[in-house]
Amino acid sequence: MTIALPLSRRGLLAGAALLAAPAVARAQRGRAASVTAAIYPGAWEEAFRDHVAPALKRAHNVDLEMQALFAVDQVAKFAASRGAPPFDCFVLDPGPRATAVERGMFDRFDASKLSNRALVPAGLIDEWGIGCNAQVVGIAYNPKKLPRPKGYADLFRDPWVSRLGITGFGTTFGTVSLIEIAKIFGGSETNVEPALVELKKVLPKIAAVSAPAALPGLLQQGQCDITYTNTQTVSTLKDRGVDIEFVVPETGATTFLTTLHLAKGCENVDAAYKYIDTVVSRGVQDALQKPPYNFIPVNKEVALGRDLPMRSLDEMEKFVRHDWTKINPLRGAWIERFNREMAK
């Protein structure tokens, strides 16, 4: 005779949980993970939506969510989050990166978690993050309108000065250009006074003083024919049919990196590393260097574009770099003074 013992409610629930466990596990395996990345608005956001997000989904079944924020806004938003990171990954230029490091906004970066680590030059990786795009800064000019300049000093002479377009310290490329101009007149990385003095002397002759975003349009429209800028802007204008060439100044080209970082305390660490690994992968880097994005790739297996002033990433070690821990404390005053004194 078999006696049926009464089941308690707890026993019923435990049994149901055991029966459901395999189905839950299967559902969890099929569910995509996700990562939230801060990204620059505009071309960066479009490029990452078109190329990074699909590649991340295919390779790792990770969904990419993006928050369109400029670098200073990323730092400000994280600072206001009070320990609850608003995104998993930063993307930053050197100035805001130095600020974020100083304020403890990053988790330590473990490059061993990247399958593509060996394909990125060692100099582009450190304890806080990894380069995802290189920038090279020099002089751009219209070869049909002007002779080829040798360096920054030519910008202050005829025939170049009357066709010159300038912008201030509001961007990384503008800041490093004006620092390099200051150096040729006796200044330094922390003393831009000589650059401002010389610019003020020729200000009546200069063709245009512009916001950074407007300067490419002025070059395209022929309102100015020479400026300091980066190779990405030159490539983009060439794609539009503008007559423009990039010149490495005789004092050397300047370079800086845009870098990716883990936000301090981010919850989706594994997905964040997969996202970063995808960004620096060969296929994605190759796609991002093509028009209309024109990024400089950081993956050594991707051939550099023929219009770049180097044949390999290793050559960038010879380019001029700057210490943003010294620049950051001074930059706000530089921006204010340029805007006040150079407005036309």
Rank of each mutant, 00 (worst) to 15 (best):
H51I: 04
G123C: 02
Q28S: 08
F70Y: 08
Y40W: 14
A27K: 10
A17Q: 03
P96C: 12
R117M: 09
R108T: 15
Q135P: 00
P22I: 04
L13Q: 09
T2F: 09
T2A: 08
K57F: 04
A37N: 07
Q67W: 05
A122G: 07
I3T: 15
A33C: 03
Y40N: 09
P94F: 02
S115R: 13
F70C: 01
A80K: 14
G42T: 07
D126C: 05
I125M: 08
G138N: 06
T2N: 09
Q67R: 14
F106T: 00
D107T: 11
D107Y: 02
S112H: 04
V52H: 04
Q67T: 12
R49Q: 12
A134D: 12
A71I: 03
C132V: 14
A134V: 10
L92Y: 01
D63H: 13
I125G: 08
A76D: 09
G83F: 05
A100S: 12
A134H: 11
Q28H: 11
F109N: 00
A38G: 13
Y40I: 08
S112E: 11
R82G: 03
H60N: 12
A20H: 07
W128V: 02
Q135C: 07
V72N: 09
C89W: 00
D126Y: 12
P94N: 09
P121E: 06
N116H: 09
V137C: 11
R103C: 01
K77E: 13
F87I: 09
P143V: 05
R82A: 06
D88L: 05
M105T: 00
S112M: 03
V72A: 10
Q67K: 15
T2I: 14
V72Y: 05
G104N: 08
I3G: 01
F78P: 00
K77V: 05
L146K: 05
R29N: 07
G42R: 11
R9S: 09
L146N: 05
R26W: 11
P6S: 07
I130M: 06
A59K: 14
V91W: 00
I139Y: 06
G30V: 02
D73E: 13
R108W: 06
K57E: 10
A98H: 08
L64G: 03
P41M: 14
L124R: 13
V62L: 03
T99F: 03
P121I: 00
A76Y: 01
R117Q: 15
R26M: 06
E102N: 10
A23M: 11
A79L: 06
K145L: 08
C132M: 12
A140W: 01
N116Q: 14
N116E: 15
R49G: 03
K77S: 10
A20R: 04
W44H: 11
W128E: 08
L119G: 00
A71F: 06
A37V: 15
